[in-house]
């Protein structure tokens, strides 16, 4: 088990999220800026159960418990940078 990190990113591993682009998110660790890498833990999660809505929200990711719809590697990294910058202010 990893030591508790500042940011916990949970990636939905359900079928819908996976085929709607979630597969690419599993490589998130490679795209994290070096400064953030130590602060972020990445985990897989069973389906969040959001699939059955009629809006396009896949793939789903949770950052510290807050859901981020239509996630992409870019979006997650940006979000993490914003969170970290806000924290530093």
């Amino acid at each position: 088990m990893q030591a508790k990190t500042k940011y916990k990113v949970e990636i939905c591993c359900g079928t819908m999220c996976y085929i709607m682009g979630g597969a690419d998110l599993h490589l998130l660790n490679d795209y994290l800026p070096a400064a953030l890498r130590q602060l972020v833990s990445i985990e897989g999660a069973p389906c969040f159960g959001n699939c059955d809505t009629h809006e396009k929200i896949h793939p789903c990711v949770r950052i510290n418990g807050v859901e981020l719809p239509n996630a992409s590697t870019r979006k997650i990294v940006d979000k993490l940078i914003i969170l970290e910058n806000n924290d530093l202010l």
Binding site: C13, G14, T15, Y18, A23, H26, G44
Partner: peptide, 9 residues
Amino acid sequence: YKPDLPPVA
């Protein structure tokens, strides 16, 4: 990580 299928749990 195997790109063709979602991971096992």
